[in-house]
Amino acid sequence: MALSLTCPICGLRNGYEFRFGGADKGPRPLEEGLTPAQWCAYAHLNTCVAGVQLEWWNHKDGCGTWFVARRDTRSNREVPKEDVQ
């Protein structure tokens, strides 16, 4: 329950309003020439960073937008943009 997130449209809101969309792994790979292993890695493997991770979140009970948040997985808190680097 501790999480609260900043929606780019609605501002700081309770974590309950959002749906997790996985770590930010970059755009979908090209389908041409993709091996099953490469595909599986993109679709299912996660690095599970202990630290600040870029993640997709959906403001499902709000405006509905998907956005990237920076979350410290150790404290389960959102990290402001300027603190990342």
Partner: peptide, 12 residues
Amino acid sequence: TVEWFRYHTRYD
């Protein structure tokens, strides 16, 4: 459905 469409086009 709407969330699904938006998720899979989120980079585009």
